[in-house]
């Protein structure tokens, strides 16, 4: 029973982190309709920024977090305005943009490696705390923070999309970009905001992961594969569906250890990704709306 509890808790933690990555990825995909795989490196950049501000420069922790989030938003906006938008203006297809995004991912990962070195880094904010016993499972206070803050974020994101004008405009652009322009929405403005918000979400993921795990230059690639898989499982066009899909992935990976050696954890994500891409590309919860001609 306690193994089951522990796997459940671990699945919940993994799912929360994947969902933080997937939600931003899917938000950006919705308004822009291309795969922003460099989203993964936004997470890594945030983790390394927090390490630089807090561990290297010795800035107050909460101020470091604030700075990291601001830089994350700026980093997202720069990628859009500096690389994707100029390409779009040259009528680049979404496949070109996807290749560009992989280019950014690799480039920035290598920059991180040049600047910080290939060895792992640790942000020593929280002393290794006594784990709490939760229905037979051990969970640290930080892990509780990860789970709670992601849930709070997802609820806020939901209300932002449903209740604010910008959220509605994002849904309108995601629905039909040309019609959105016709009714007066400045598409580039909405796309810029989606990059800022999506990248800040990635920044939050980076901060939480950075506190929980070691920092590695290639951590972004691992995470975007998980986030992307979660989004595909749920349904990439819908942010809530991507979030649910990510939790499913988190649980699948962890319960999988019951049946498989733990070295197969990565294989589970890839297998699920392939299965969904082949047999159910719209995901479990993706809307199958009749498409008007």
């Amino acid at each position: 029973m306690s193994i089951f509890s522990q796997l459940t808790v671990n699945g919940l933690i993994a799912g929360s982190i994947y969902a933080l990555v997937a939600s931003g990825f899917s938000l950006i995909y919705g308004t822009n309709k291309f795969m922003h795989f460099a989203h993964g490196v936004s997470v890594a950049v945030a983790a390394y920024l927090l390490y630089s501000f807090f561990s290297l420069a010795g800035i107050n922790f909460y101020f470091s977090v604030l700075l990291t989030l601001i830089f994350s938003g700026v980093f997202g906006l720069l990628m859009y305005r500096g690389i994707y938008l100029p390409l779009q203006n040259k009528k680049a297809s979404n496949v070109i943009l996807l290749i560009a995004s992989i280019g950014i991912l690799i480039l920035v990962e290598n920059l991180i490696q040049i600047i910080y070195g290939a060895d792992v880094k640790v942000i020593n904010f929280i002393e290794v705390a006594q784990g709490l016993n939760f229905f037979g499972a051990i969970i640290t206070p930080l892990q509780i923070v990860i789970i709670l803050s992601s849930v709070i974020l997802f609820v806020s994101l939901y209300f932002f999309m449903k209740k604010t004008r910008l959220g509605r405009d994002m849904r309108a652009v995601a629905d039909n970009k040309e019609l959105a322009s016709i009714v007066g929405i400045n598409y580039k403005r909405v796309a810029s905001y989606s990059f800022i918000i999506g990248s800040v979400l990635a920044g939050i993921a980076g901060i939480l992961i950075g506190l929980e795990q070691n920092l590695r230059p290639l951590m972004g690639t691992d995470l975007i594969i998980r986030g992307f898989t979660g989004a595909v499982i749920g349904g990439i066009t819908s942010v809530p569906a991507s979030i649910l899909g990510s939790y499913i992935l988190g649980f699948a990976e962890n319960y999988g250890i019951w049946f498989l050696p733990s070295g197969y954890k990565d294989a589970i994500a890839f297998a699920l990704l392939l299965i969904f891409l082949l047999f159910r590309p719209r995901g479990l919860f993706g809307l199958k709306r009749e498409v008007e001609k």
């Binding site: 629905d175 019609l179 322009s181 016709i182 007066g184 400045n186």
Partner: peptide, 24 residues
Amino acid sequence: LKTHELIREGICYVCQGRIIFGNL
């Protein structure tokens, strides 16, 4: 003028085909 600027001039366009936001 950019597409999104035209409604401010007082012109509205109801296009052919997909004329509404289905998900709104």
